[in-house]
């Protein structure tokens, strides 16, 4: 169970990693935060993955108001990966997060999810604050549980901010292969 400090820590660390973390206490907060992001990023197309039906419906409705087209699962293998390469913002649901390191953990039983969070220029990861753990080392328990629940092929990705490189002169540059902009949307219990 995440404490207020954990949420605050996550937000601070995620920001230090050049990401932007927002806390949404209510369903209305979710709408206004996403609306602000959509205003800022001005996407033509958004792709969704690993979200609850409710969130999928909420985001779809929001995008419809703004004439943004929405791609959502199921994704057909024949369209992949090129379909996701046309997308401006990928929005994915996360299984757990780590406060200490500003990390979102995404579980993929279908690699389309990994494409949605890595091919677009902007990624929004959505996390229930109830799924926030304190430290990197503590996350082992959550990770093991996921592996135990899914005995076949699986890819769990820890995502901590936008894609970065220091390969030229060790100067930090964002967005070399993955997203240049990363948002975390933390959902409170009543959102």
């Amino acid at each position: 169970m995440a404490t207020a400090t954990d949420i605050e820590t996550f937000q601070t660390v995620f920001a230090a990693l050049a990401g932007q973390a927002h806390y949404a206490a209510t369903r209305d907060d979710v709408n206004s935060i996403l609306e602000a992001i959509l205003e800022k990023e001005k996407p033509a197309t958004v792709a969704l993955a690993a979200l609850s039906d409710e969130l999928t419906a909420q985001i779809t409705a929001l995008c419809a108001e703004k004439n943004i087209s929405v791609l959502k699962p199921p994704y057909q293998s024949s369209e992949l990966p090129s379909l996701i390469d046309t997308v401006d913002i990928g929005i994915t649901g996360c299984a757990f997060g780590i406060a200490e390191t500003g990390t979102l953990a995404e579980v993929a039983l279908d690699d389309a999810i990994r494409l949605v969070s890595s091919l677009p220029r902007t990624h929004i990861g959505i996390l229930h604050t109830t799924d926030l753990v304190g430290t990197l080392l503590e996350s082992s328990t959550a990770l093991r549980r996921i592996f135990d629940e899914h005995p076949a092929g699986i890819a769990v990705s820890y995502l901590s901010g936008p894609s970065r490189t220091g390969d030229i002169e060790m100067k930090l540059t964002l967005g070399v292969h993955g997203p240049e902009t990363a948002y975390a949307l933390l959902l409170g219990e009543s959102s």
């Binding site: 990693l17 699962p73 199921p74 994704y75 057909q76 293998s77 024949s78 369209e79 992949l80 990966p81 390191t101 990390t103 993929a108 039983l109 279908d110 690699d111 389309a112 494409l115 990197l136 990770l143 592996f147 076949a152 092929g153 699986i154 890819a155 769990v156 990705s157 820890y158 995502l159 901590s160 901010g161 936008p162 894609s163 970065r164 220091g166 993955g178």
Partner: peptide, 25 residues
Amino acid sequence: ASGQMPTTYVTWMAGRTPLGDDGEA
């Protein structure tokens, strides 16, 4: 290496997942 913690991406990959809803192994 550089005081970072952890790297931006850490992938824990076991076996292989399909690509797409109707994807094959």
